[in-house]
Write a protein that binds this DNA or RNA. Structure first.
Length: 285
DNA sequence: AATTGTACCTGTCAGC
DNA sequence: TGCTGACAGGTACAAT
């Protein structure tokens, strides 16, 4: 479910709801979700901690406590973090519940059970392997045109695989990669190291604008995604490529096609997103 | 070293 | 109606 814009929206909506709250009780119904501690230790550490702030890095949501601990949550495909009242019904697939002293609860719900939680001291976030290797934030000051040019240089991999790889840019997933490539008019199969200077410039701006727009519209709800209050996003109504196979391209009217690239469904305008720009290789895929 | 395939899960939907 | 197979927002690890 959640890529950077969704996790950012959850982070912001959680900030409004649970900053300053103190944990009264922790319940875990699915032990494998906790990656750093045995369940009993996990509960013992968290009980009595007070939430200082909520942050995000890539697709990781980070709950920082005043006492120095950080709870790092990754929602993978179908995870949700929602705030409810203690008396509200516990729905199916609820795997952890954090009850605060005021009887509000933070609940972790995850149909496919891929989500993870790490509990570490705040200065040890880098010990989480997925965080340690994250590339720059697309909206941060480390993500610059010169950075993108040098990161792409000489890469044999397909541009789609490059963009999905969290070590080059943090937070992009299948939806926003397809949208950014559509905006930049670049075919997902194009070899990363073969992009022209103009294409790289277009891609740089397309990545930033797509992510910004996703955040502005509070994320994309295809099916499961909701923010901390249970609200859906609205960016799904503005998608131009993802999920639109068989529909007309908003730029040229050609039909959007779907094709597997880098193991993922990819949505492409066959006319706007050209693969062949003279400098490309002649190997047919 | 870099790239691809597979595994992890449940739910949904199209086709028969 | 079932049943089957493909597919779904992600990532870690094995295999090549």
């Amino acid at each position: 479910m959640p890529e950077l814009p969704e996790v950012e929206t959850i982070s912001r909506s959680l900030t409004e709801k649970i900053i300053g709250k103190k944990i009264f009780q922790v319940e875990v119904f699915m032990a494998k979700l906790i990656k750093t501690h045995h369940v009993e230790q996990f509960k013992a550490v968290l009980k009595g901690l007070t939430i200082r702030d909520i942050a995000r890095r890539g697709k990781y949501l980070i709950i920082n406590f005043q006492e120095g601990w950080s709870l790092v949550v990754h929602l993978r495909m179908t995870g949700q973090l929602v705030v409810r009242q203690a008396q509200d019904e516990i729905i199916k697939h609820t795997h952890a519940v954090f009850t605060f002293e005021d009887k509000t609860q933070l609940r972790f719900i995850d149909i496919r059970q891929f989500g993870t939680m790490h509990l570490v001291m705040n200065d040890k976030l880098d010990e989480i392997s997925g965080i340690q290797t994250l590339g720059p934030e697309p909206l941060g000051e480390d993500f610059t045109l010169p950075y993108l040019i040098s990161a792409l240089a000489g890469k044999k991999t397909k541009i789609k695989a490059f963009l999905l790889d969290q070590k080059w840019i943090a937070g992009l997933g299948n939806i926003y990669v397809d949208e950014a490539l559509f905006q930049a008019k670049i075919h997902p199969l194009k070899e990363a190291g073969n992009l022209t200077r103009t294409e790289i410039e277009r891609l740089f701006h397309a990545v930033r604008e797509t992510i910004k727009a996703g955040i502005e519209h509070r994320g994309t709800t295809l099916k499961d995604y909701v923010d901390a209050e249970g609200n859906k996003g609205t960016f799904q109504f503005r998608l131009k490529a993802y999920g639109r196979s068989g529909q007309a391209c908003s730029t040229c009217g050609s039909l959007i096609i779907r094709e597997k690239v880098a193991g993922r469904s990819s949505h492409i305008c066959p006319k706007c997103q050209i693969l062949d720009t003279l400098d490309n290789n002649m190997v047919t895929e």
